[in-house]
Nucleic acid binder design. Sequence first.
DNA 1: TGTCGCTGCTAATTCGCATTACCACTGGAA
DNA 2: TTCCAGTGGTAATGCGAATTAGCAGCGACA
Lengths: 340, 340
Amino acid sequence: MPDRATRLTQRDIARLAKVSQTTVSLVLNNRSDATARIPAETRDRVLKVIRETGYQADPLARRMLKQRNQILGVFTYESVFPSASGDFYHPFLAGIEERAERLGWDLLLFTSAPVTAGRRRIFHENNRLRIADGCLLLGRQIPSDELARLIAEEYPFVSVGRRDDAGGPVPYVGADYATATRIVVERAQALGHRRIAFAGPGAGAESSADRMQGFRQAAARAPHLPTADRSGGDLLDDLLDRKVTAVFVEERADAIALAHSAARRGVAIPSDLSVVALGDSTRPAESDIDFSGFHVPRRAMGLQAVELLEAVLSGTATERQLLLPCELTDGTTLTPPKGA
Amino acid sequence: MPDRATRLTQRDIARLAKVSQTTVSLVLNNRSDATARIPAETRDRVLKVIRETGYQADPLARRMLKQRNQILGVFTYESVFPSASGDFYHPFLAGIEERAERLGWDLLLFTSAPVTAGRRRIFHENNRLRIADGCLLLGRQIPSDELARLIAEEYPFVSVGRRDDAGGPVPYVGADYATATRIVVERAQALGHRRIAFAGPGAGAESSADRMQGFRQAAARAPHLPTADRSGGDLLDDLLDRKVTAVFVEERADAIALAHSAARRGVAIPSDLSVVALGDSTRPAESDIDFSGFHVPRRAMGLQAVELLEAVLSGTATERQLLLPCELTDGTTLTPPKGA
DNA sequence: TGTCGCTGCTAATTCGCATTACCACTGGAA
DNA sequence: TTCCAGTGGTAATGCGAATTAGCAGCGACA
């Protein structure tokens, strides 16, 4: 530990400059209003001591009295860095870091939150949310009871990703999966695809539900095929049985698995089967395939989330729910169906 | 902002439970030693109020009195997330996060540090280092004046990566580049390589100097070729002119560029030229080539750095400078030279 | 001579919590 | 009745900085 005895406080500075602690504080905060008139001579003397000693005010002691701490909390419901989902979170954090840097904020990653039943929890015995001025929430799914409590306590936070109401509207910066999905489905239909299908959860997390909703807007009765606990080959069989010509895959990793199976079986993509990816991989998966579909504007979401939180904190926020458009990509896996 | 008036304090709890603030504190900290005997009845009453109100102690106020803050600072001399060097830092941070999680620490990324002359500086006007209990330092090069000041101020920190003394020994967890480099060079010599070369800076950062030192141990007079401001083709020409049969490339990205040039020119790797990579890419570069050489134990370095810092903080640290072995990889780019 | 007003500071208090010191009360023994 | 030990709490203090209230000292003016 830094030696308590040698750690400088305003009192030490005051003693050295032969003034009171108050004066040091006044000089540091550059207060020169009617209540505090510090002549240049005294001010310089204090500043000189501060320079010589390298004194730095303790930010936490400050926070006891002032409101803002310039610390932006980041809570992720999965680990941030470990590679399982690290690559997915990376762009979000890049955006967050960029904007935090510009605002002069530090980022506090709540890694101390204990993991129970495979997930982190915000609220636990020794909750440390209040160290930060406000908090950003990341994760595929966030328990609504936690969101409800944050809202009830009026803790300033912004979710990265749309969330359903939880005892009140949740402030968020999300991606407009519904519109993006609808557009790519319509695009496929315009190319002549009539037998299409949705592959993936399609429910559970808001992001899944939104994609499904967009899909249904364009194709009300097309089949919905699960991907959980199912190999790419299994899914491929299902698709071929149903004579599907274009499949819309919620999770890019599933699309990659599907493509591998297709390659092994001699099923050509896109001539035999068009594959559209509805976003980016949340699971580790490498592929050179340039899928048709769209990308999640992750970096922009991170940026905007920080900005929204700043607005919330300063009380200037008007609209607290924001959906950003997804970036559509032409890719190489969507072409007209055979015989069209 | 959370409404100051509605924010619960121990005093509020005390009032509701009809006890003193002291008692609330004693209950919360589960003190039941000789100086504080709280009968179960009182304790339950207090706990009941705490449960009902959802009170959480302010972590900042706690820190004013306790020693530890449970916050681990992370200072990177480049941006952490932006992809330029993000992929390189990722494994370090994964290791740091993992161990921080286990110790119940939060991670504070000092993104607020202003960038001057292209780099961040620790020490600036409004230094916030002391929010954290201690700090980890990441970066290829860290100005020695900053290290010196940290040492002089007795601020607890650990560098990830070896650093030269800076007014005193710098605590670090580094990688043993020297030994790893020496071993791969000797391995190449054992395969019959006689005309070898080192390609890369070989100086500047400690990590560069260490590789060069290892190289010199095994090959005292082999040539050292620069890579800065030079295309892969240029380097290749140089190597061919000198009839080099095995080149040891400091930076994997340079090795990749070299391999690309070789492929274009019809120079076969490894039969015409063996290429050994002395570590991982710090610059973005993708390649399927499985280079012979070694990997930096980045994850382990992160883990151990946190552990060392913990030891420093608790005063149990004995050895404060630690070098971890690099992971040697056989790869496919080192074979005996032609005619050997 | 008294007092008003200005300057240039400082004493005292506050933030929320932890800790130490100490006080009030009870019951049994002397 | 006094003494003492044990019980169950509370008052007071401190952490480091910010803020409010206010106090000396001095000159001007009535």
